[in-house]
Write a protein that binds this DNA or RNA. Structure first.
Length: 431
RNA sequence: GCGGGCGUAGCCAAGAGGUUAAGGCAGUGGAUUGUGGUUCCACCACUCGUGGGUUCGAGUCCCAUCGUCCGCCCCA
C-alpha cells in the first residue's frame, strides 16, 4: 500500500496505554526516592566493546542480539541491550566511587535486542533498573529484592514467584561448571540437541531445559549449592534469613542461571502468571566482578531490572482502570461566546483545573454529547445570552443540575469550586 | 535463528471459486438551529496486509513477501 509501518519489534504506545506507563513510572519514582536511590541517565548507545566485555562475548545477548553498527566516524556503536553495563561505565567514568560509601542508582529507559518479537518481547523494550554499588553486605541483596517486591505490590500485582539461587564466586562457578560438564558428559547422547550444543558453551543452562529426558538427567546432576565456598555459603544463608525476616517468600531454584556473565553470588527472578513464555518480569543479582572488569576499582554491587512491557501487559490484563481525569468540558456557541470561552478556559487552567474546550462549533446538542463522553465532571456553557451579561452556565453532568454564575466568580471562587468537584468525583466513584 | 497458527473498516467479525463484500460496536450527519447519557433514520470497505500466479471468474486456491500471534533458543 506504500504506507511505511513501524519497524518490526517496535510499536507506538498510544494515549490510552500511556496512562499505565505513567502510573508505573510515578509509583517507581516515589518508591525509589523513598529508598534513597537516585536516578541516573546514561546514553542509549555505547561503544560496542563495553557490552562485549561487560555482558560477556559468549552470551546470546552479545553474540546474536545486539543492534550494532558503525557510525560515520567508523566507530562500532551498539544500542544498549541492558542497563547495567552503561550504569557501571558511568559510575567509573564519573568517579562516583570517589564519593565514598554506597551509590544507590536507578534508571528507566529503552533497551534494544534483535530478537524475534512476541507478546512481552519487543526489539525496543523498556526497563526500570536499580544498581546498588559498593556494598558486599547481604542486606544490600535483601534491600534490592525488597524494593522489587514492594514495587510489584504497590502496583497491585496480585501474585508472583521469587526464585533465588547463588552462583557463588567466579571460582565456585568454574568448579561447579567442571563438575557439571563431567557429569553430563556421561549422558551426552541422551541429551536433546540444544543441550548437547550447550554442553561447551553454556552448560548451566542445560539444567533449565524443557526437554523431558534432559530434565530427567538434570535431576541427578550435582547441585551448585554444594560447590559454594564458606564465604559464599554464609552470604547466601544470610540473604535467605533476611528475606524471611522481611516476610518475603521465595523458593530456591538451583537451576536458575542468569544469562549474563557478570552475575556472582545471589541471582533471582520474579515471575508472573499470564504472560506465556515471558513470565520473568524482573531479573537481577549480584555482580561483584563487573566494575573491575570494566576498569574501575574493586566494587561489589547488586541490582535488578524490571521489564516494563511485561509488567504493563499484566496490569492491563487485570483491567485496572486508570483514566486521565477531566474537570471541565467547555461548550460555546457564537463568535463572542467562543472567544470568552477560550479566555475562561485558560483562566480555569491557571487555577489548576483541567479543561477541554469543544472546537466543533456545532449545535449545543452535539457539544453536550461530547461533553458527556469526555468524562468531565462539569460542563461550562457559554451562549449568546451568557456572552452578553458575562455569565456562564455551569452544569454538573452527573446530577444534571445547572447553575448560573458570573464568569469572574467562577474564577474567584475556585476554592469552593474545587471542593465541589472533589465531592462530586468521590460521590460518583463510590457509588 | 528454528517450527507452527493467523492477516476482511478504528475495533469485533460473517464469508469456504460465481453477479452489488453480512452483522455488531465505535464514528459522522439528521430527527432535536440553547442542553448530554435513551430511541429512531441515514452515511460509513471501487475492496479483503502487499506483490505475483492459476482460472472465463479469486476475499476464497498457489507462490513470494511483510506483519502479528504461539512455542523453541534466549531474556526483562
Amino acid at each position: 500500500m506504500g504506507f511505511i509501518q513501524v519497524s518490526r519489534g517496535t510499536r507506538d504506545i498510544l494515549p490510552e496505554e500511556v496512562i499505565y506507563w505513567q502510573h508505573v513510572e510515578a509509583t517507581a519514582r516515589e518508591l525509589l526516592q523513598q529508598a534513597a536511590y537516585r536516578e541516573l541517565r546514561t546514553p542509549i548507545f555505547e561503544q560496542t566493546n563495553l557490552f562485549e566485555r561487560g555482558i560477556g562475548e559468549a552470551t546470546d545477548v552479545v553474540g546474536k542480539e545486539m543492534y550494532t553498527f558503525n557510525d560515520r566516524g567508523d566507530r562500532s556503536i551498539t544500542l544498549r541491550p541492558e542497563g547495567t553495563a552503561g550504569a557501571v561505565r558511568a559510575y567509573i567514568e564519573n568517579k562516583l566511587y570517589a564519593q565514598g560509601g554506597v551509590q544507590r542508582l536507578w534508571y528507566i529507559g529503552s533497551m534494544f535486542r534483535y530478537e524475534r518479537p512476541q507478546t512481552g518481547r519487543q526489539r525496543q523494550f523498556h526497563q526500570i533498573g536499580v544498581e546498588c554499588l559498593g556494598s558486599i553486605d547481604p542486606r544490600a541483596d535483601a534491600e534490592v529484592i525488597a524494593i522489587a517486591a514492594q514495587l510489584l505490590q504497590s502496583l497491585g500485582v496480585p501474585e508472583w514467584t521469587l526464585s533465588l539461587n547463588s552462583l557463588g564466586t567466579s571460582e565456585d562457578r568454574q568448579r561447579y561448571r567442571d563438575a557439571l560438564v563431567n557429569y553430563l558428559d556421561q549422558y551426552k547422547d541422551d541429551l536433546d540437541p540444544d543441550s548437547q550444543d550447550r554442553l561447551q558453551r553454556n552448560p548451566l543452562r542445560i539444567l533449565d531445559s524443557k526437554d523431558a529426558k534432559t530434565q530427567e538427567i538434570a535431576k541427578a546432576a550435582p547441585n551448585i549449592l554444594g560447590y559454594l565456598d564458606t564465604d559464599s555459603q554464609q552470604h547466601f544463608d544470610r540473604v535467605q534469613q533476611l528475606l524471611t525476616d522481611l516476610d518475603i517468600a521465595y523458593k530456591l531454584n538451583p537451576c536458575l542461571v542468569r544469562g549474563l556473565d557478570y552475575y556472582t553470588h545471589t541471582a533471582f527472578e520474579f515471575e508472573l502468571d499470564g504472560l506465556g513464555a515471558q513470565a520473568t518480569v524482573c531479573g537481577g543479582g549480584r555482580y561483584d566482578g563487573l566494575v573491575t572488569e570494566l576498569g574501575g576499582p574493586d566494587t561489589p554491587a547488586v541490582g535488578w531490572a524490571i521489564g516494563m512491557e511485561r509488567l504493563i501487559l499484566l496490569l492491563q490484563n487485570a483491567e485496572l482502570t486508570l483514566n486521565q481525569s477531566l474537570d471541565f468540558y467547555c461548550v460555546a456557541r457564537g463568535l463572542e461566546a467562543e472567544a470568552q470561552a477560550l479566555i475562561l478556559c485558560q483562566n480555569l487552567r491557571k487555577q489548576g483545573f483541567s479543561v477541554e474546550m469543544d472546537l466543533s462549533g456545532s449545535t449545543f446538542s452535539k457539544q453536550f454529547k461530547r461533553a458527556d463522553r469526555s468524562g468531565a465532571i462539569a460542563c461550562v456553557i457559554l451562549g449568546e445570552t451568557e456572552a452578553c451579561d458575562r455569565t456562564v452556565q455551569l452544569k454538573w453532568l452527573i446530577s444534571g443540575e445547572q447553575e448560573s454564575l458570573l464568569q469572574k466568580d467562577l474564577i474567584n471562587q475556585s476554592q469552593q469550586l474545587r471542593e465541589k468537584l472533589m465531592a462530586t468525583k468521590s460521590a460518583n466513584s463510590s457509588s
